[in-house]
């Protein structure tokens, strides 16, 4: 059974249609990149998948025992966060919040999960550092660790490499691929199509509607890919 299943999903803002009758399934273990130009509706679709914005029509359903509070999310950074006084550990631990509902205070088990995820992304030694003092790449790792505290199943990444330099970008992609190999299903929104086709196993190319959905090897051979890259080869 599919982990996420979208059927005829239509979403939009007041006078504008952003997502038009989009249907696709994401299977367990997939690494899907959603690509498209600005304003193609990929961010809106992500909001729909996260439940931040209800679809106008159609259904988004989770399968295989996945629930709303089992999703990890790596949002784009906001201005507020860049300058936020919080320690790395506090930020990562806050990813455990969705496990507990209304209960106050974290348990020892949750603290352990936070520590384990810090180590998993090799930022254990930054634990006591202030979030606002970190480099862009380190901040992304911290937010990824927080997302991992929230899930063991599915990660949704919104432009995970925006503003990072090439070396750190490559590290980030390596990290994401590694997490996928550990069994976490990945759904990534990206406008960096070159890296997307080389990293993801499936590509969802959209422009309000779905233009292509399938394995990235197939996408690389398609006319659409060539056109999108402006004549550059996708291989």
């Amino acid at each position: 059974m599919a982990l996420i299943s979208c059927k005829e999903v239509t979403m939009g803002y007041e006078h504008q249609l952003a997502v038009d009758h989009v249907s696709f399934d994401i299977e367990v273990g997939d690494y899907v990149a959603i690509v498209g130009e600005n304003g193609s509706g990929k961010s809106t679709l992500l909001k729909g998948l996260l439940g931040l914005m209800p679809p106008r029509s159609g259904t988004i359903s989770y399968g295989d025992g996945l629930k709303r509070n089992m999703i990890g999310y790596l949002p784009q950074q906001t201005v507020v966060q860049r300058d936020f006084p919080a320690s790395v550990y506090e930020v990562v631990l806050s990813g455990c919040l969705n496990r507990r509902g209304l209960k106050p205070f974290y348990t020892a088990a949750e603290r352990k999960i936070a520590m384990a995820n810090l180590e998993r992304l090799s930022i254990g030694d930054l634990r006591k550092k202030s979030y606002r003092g970190l480099s862009g790449g380190q901040q992304q790792r911290v937010l990824l660790a927080r997302a991992l505290c929230a899930t063991e199943r599915l990660l949704l990444l919104d432009e995970p490499v925006t503003g990072l330099d090439p070396v750190v970008t490559a590290e980030m992609y390596g990290l994401i691929r590694h997490l996928n190999q550990e069994g976490i299903t990945i759904l990534m929104v990206s406008h960096d199509i070159n890296c997307a086709v080389h990293n993801a196993s499936k590509i969802l190319h959209m422009d309000t509607q779905v233009l292509f959905y399938g394995p990235s090897a197939e996408y690389r051979k398609s006319e659409l890919c060539h056109r999108f890259l402006g004549g550059e080869s996708c291989d």
């Binding site: 996260l50 439940g51 931040l52 629930k67 709303r68 509070n69 999703i71 990890g72 999310y73 949002p75 906001t78 507020v80 966060q81 936020f84 919080a86 506090e90 930020v91 806050s94 990813g95 919040l97 969705n98 106050p104 205070f105 974290y106 937010l143 927080r146 997302a147 929230a150 949704l156």
Partner: peptide, 23 residues
């Protein structure tokens, strides 16, 4: 404030993440 300290931290730091993960 003390009871909901952690929730308040979460929605202060990142409302989108908190909402998306079911808070």
């Amino acid at each position: 404030f003390v009871i909901f300290y952690n929730q308040i931290f979460a929605v202060t730091f990142d409302e989108a993440f908190a909402k998306a993960t079911g808070v």
